[in-house]
Amino acid sequence: MRLDRRRLNGIAEQGVSIFVTLFGLLILTFVIGRIMPVDPVRAIVGEDATREVYENVYRQLGLDKPMWQQFLLYMRDVVTLDFGTSIRTGQPVLQDIARVLPATIELATFAILIGAGLGTPLGVIAAVNKDRWPDQLIRVISLMGHSMPIFWTGMIALLVFYANLGWVGGSGRMSQFYIGLVPERTNFLLIDSALAGEWEVFRSAINHIILPAALLGYSSSAYITRMTRSFMLDQLGQEYVTTARVKGLSRRQTVWRHAFGNIRVQLVTIVALAYGALLEGAVLIETVFAWPGFGQYLTSNLLIGDMNAVMTCVLIVGVIFIGLNILSDILYRVFDPRTR
């Protein structure tokens, strides 16, 4: 890859657009903080504080300053990673996030691996066998994944696979027994337990993550299957596919060596989108499986109007999506020579 003028311009352009998006995101979270129907001062001082105490905190929070100054202060806080304290947990928001986000990332990553690993081949098979029985069958499978009530399915799955069959661990990230056993370095339990060499904990963590991840993965595989099928059908109608067959390649070689390479770009984009959706946190699954993740954290703080925490969560969701966008942009360039 040469760094010529055109490429530099491209990078600069992208840099600017990321910057603008981030700025827009800050405005958004700031506005959310202002329009939430909670009085941030009351939330801190409580109902029976004196007028004097109230005014004091009011000034401390900078609420007496003009809007634009408040926004600048907010920006300063964000840049210095000072997100304030959560009223609900009484801890710095950053510390809370460092605890709940890895739990969700772990779950979402497992889930997307299952979802893409299942959805992509199913979509290809459906396309290759369009309107024949494998296509029909796959349509039913993914329709079920798409429409299953995840709360209900989650409980049934727990009943069957945990309570009855005992194949997997129950709720939480690991057995009660192991809690507190490994030092929390990254808060990714799989990494922490591996680092500590606690393989029993590691196994327990895998046992606990597999069921919720499978359910989430199955439900996002429905979308991935459907999109893969339609991308693939599109490519199978192209002339270069005929060329490949004329050369004497079998159907399977034609599909995987030629057509599949041409859907990778689109595939990456939709998998990134699905992953982003999972990272926002799957509240229902997290609730059913008592998974101390981001989705639960965001929802419970939203319900009680914990402003600092909510603003930070929204900011993080935004940053995640910007990051995934950049990632899929980069992969786009890797996979398609026409964009280089």
Partner: peptide, 10 residues
Amino acid sequence: DPKFSLNPIQ
């Protein structure tokens, strides 16, 4: 038409 009959990414 070679525009369509050649695989664009190879």
